[in-house]
Simulated scan of single mutants.
Amino acid sequence: MDLLVIARDNGFDHLLIQTNCLEAVTRLNVPSAGSDVNALVRAIVRMRNTGWITIVRWIPRVENKLADAMAKLDATYDLALFAAAPMPLLPYLVSV
């Protein structure tokens, strides 16, 4: 949820959320997600319905090398917004 708040507060209006948790993707993408029994799911749905364009997509863990590389970064980063990608992540980023 913190990442969504950071994205919103920094003006990101298009957001692609990728996770290897198929249950989370399923629960967030069903039409009834706004009435889910889980308060976090309902909160995420409310945030997604505030004028954003968001996509929640499942990605197998073995295919998400960027997330794996980010998890291995020095723990001093904690939760942060970078002006530029940290050097260890550059090989995993694709130019558009």
Rank of each mutant, 00 (worst) to 15 (best):
L89R: 14
V96D: 14
Y77C: 03
L73K: 06
R61L: 02
V41E: 13
A71R: 07
L73D: 01
L93Y: 09
V5D: 10
R27A: 08
G11E: 10
L3S: 13
I17P: 00
P31V: 02
M70H: 02
L15V: 15
S32I: 04
N10H: 15
T19I: 08
M1T: 04
R46E: 14
M47Y: 04
Y92P: 01
P88A: 03
Y77F: 13
L16H: 13
S32C: 03
K65V: 01
P31I: 00
D2S: 12
A69N: 05
N20M: 04
V96H: 10
I53K: 10
I17S: 03
L81M: 14
T50V: 08
I6G: 04
S32M: 06
T76S: 15
G34W: 04
L22D: 10
Q18S: 02
K72W: 01
L89F: 03
A75Q: 10
A80G: 02
V56K: 00
T76V: 11
N10C: 05
A7D: 01
T19H: 06
L3T: 12
T50N: 12
L16I: 01
L90T: 14
A83E: 14
G51P: 07
V30F: 09
T54I: 15
A39D: 15
R42H: 12
V56D: 08
M1V: 11
S95W: 12
A24K: 04
I53P: 00
V41C: 11
G34C: 11
T50Y: 01
S35L: 08
V25N: 02
V94P: 05
D13P: 00
D68S: 09
T76Y: 12
P91T: 00
L22V: 05
K65A: 05
I6D: 13
A43W: 01
T19S: 15
L22S: 07
L81F: 14
A71W: 09
A75T: 07
T26F: 04
L15Q: 08
L40H: 11
N10P: 02
P60D: 06
I53M: 10
M87R: 12
R8P: 02
Y92S: 06
D78M: 04
I53W: 10
L66V: 05
V56R: 02
K72M: 02
K72F: 02
T19W: 05
A69I: 07
P60H: 00
R8T: 04
D36T: 08
V5L: 13
V5G: 00
I55G: 06
I6Y: 05
I59V: 15
I59E: 07
L4N: 10
